[in-house]
Amino acid sequence: MKLLIITAIMAFDKDIKKMLKKADVKTYTYKEVTGFKDLSEEAIESNWFGSEMNENESILYYAFVKKENVDLFFELVNEFNLEQKTLSNIHIAVLNIEKSN
């Protein structure tokens, strides 16, 4: 069993749900969150947002997933991210679960 953690901008919410379904992940939890990025060290001319602090409407998912479903989900997300014309991507992390009930 693995713990899958997914973060993305809110605009990708429906896409993530479709990918979870394709990867046969039937149970998950999600929550609207505020994403934050400190851009104060970036040169103002290369900073698309034009300010030092940036907050975005984001979404956080987590799910307990069978090992065999994790690789398929990663493939789907990698394909999705390659097609993006925006600077934003879907981000994934996977943690091993040693025990669960």
Rank of each mutant, 00 (worst) to 15 (best):
G35F: 01
G35Q: 01
Y61K: 04
V94H: 00
L82C: 10
K31W: 07
T34N: 10
E75T: 09
L3D: 03
M19I: 01
I44K: 15
K21D: 15
K2V: 05
I16T: 01
A63P: 00
D71W: 05
E79F: 11
I9L: 10
Q84G: 05
E83C: 05
E45S: 13
E75I: 06
G35D: 02
F80H: 06
F36Y: 14
L3F: 06
T86H: 03
Y62F: 10
L76Q: 02
A11V: 10
E68K: 10
A23Y: 02
L87M: 11
E83Q: 14
I59S: 00
K66L: 08
F49L: 12
M1A: 11
F73Y: 09
F73I: 03
V77N: 00
S51Y: 06
N101E: 14
T86Q: 08
E32T: 14
K37S: 10
I59T: 02
E83A: 15
I6Q: 01
T27W: 07
K31F: 13
L20G: 00
I6N: 01
E98M: 12
N96E: 15
L82N: 15
V65M: 03
A23P: 01
E75N: 15
K2A: 04
I59F: 03
N69M: 05
I44T: 13
V94K: 00
S58V: 03
K22Q: 13
N89M: 04
I97K: 06
N47L: 03
E98W: 11
V94A: 08
K37Y: 05
M19Y: 02
E41R: 14
K99M: 10
E32H: 10
N56T: 11
Y62A: 05
V25G: 00
V70I: 12
I97T: 09
K2M: 09
D38G: 02
A43S: 15
L4V: 10
Y30R: 05
I16R: 00
N78C: 08
